[in-house]
């Protein structure tokens, strides 16, 4: 059992990284990775939202949709749950860290439309995860997201002061860096067989 949970975490953080392998949640990945602090803040906010929404989506699915035979309402119900969780997170961040709130700006409410969050909820159902596995799956996906955000932001901070050829400056070199990072993360596919 423990082995299975460890495998879920490892798989979501490295092997099936949401950003670099499944290409989910690219908008904040490009949008808020300019500075390390905001990237970390975004990572933390997303971690909170992803874990909580995975749990809430599981509860909604298990105790509301399945008993009533309403599986076809999953997508809309999950979107509703995610929107609520994001709204709640926004209030908490606004209260606890106003500067982070301002730094995240529009990207904080945009977590609602971050496909990684909905993907975690839907993939949980698809993989028939139980409660703990769902929570771990969401948490692992979020940790993977945060890890990549922090790595990427650190790289971008260095690239800004690096001597980049004129035509590659700005978004171009950022995209190339993201691509190379993605290639590197594909390498983790060899970690788990099958």
């Amino acid at each position: 059992m423990i082995n299975e949970y460890a495998l879920i975490l490892l798989s979501t953080i490295l092997v099936n990284n949401y950003v670099l392998v499944k290409f989910l949640g690219l908008c904040p990945f490009m949008g808020v990775s300019r500075k390390l602090e905001t990237a970390m803040g975004m990572g933390l906010a997303t971690t909170f939202v992803l874990t909580l929404s995975s749990i809430c989506a599981y509860l909604t699915d298990h105790y509301l949709l399945i008993p009533l035979g309403l599986e076809y309402l999953r997508t809309i119900a999950f979107i509703l749950v995610i929107a609520v969780v994001v709204q709640f997170t926004e209030m908490v961040v606004h209260k606890t860290s106003p500067v982070l709130y301002q730094a995240l700006g529009i990207y904080l409410p945009l977590i609602t439309t971050n496909c990684a969050v909905l993907a975690a909820a839907l993939l949980n159902v698809q993989a028939r995860h139980d409660f703990i596995a769902s929570a771990l799956y969401g948490f692992g996906a979020a940790i993977g997201f945060s890890l990549v955000m922090v790595l990427f932001a650190a790289m971008r901070e260095r690239i800004v002061v690096a001597d980049v050829p004129v035509h590659f400056r700005g978004p171009a070199i950022t995209m190339i860096t993201a691509g190379l990072m993605s290639l590197a993360f594909m390498g983790f596919a060899g970690l788990v067989r099958g």
């Binding site: 009533l68 309403l70 809309i76």
Partner: peptide, 14 residues
């Protein structure tokens, strides 16, 4: 109606 009420309850609770 079950679907409508279920979603309504979910939205109301949220």
């Amino acid at each position: 109606w079950v679907a409508v009420i279920a979603l309504g309850v979910l939205a109301g609770a949220s």
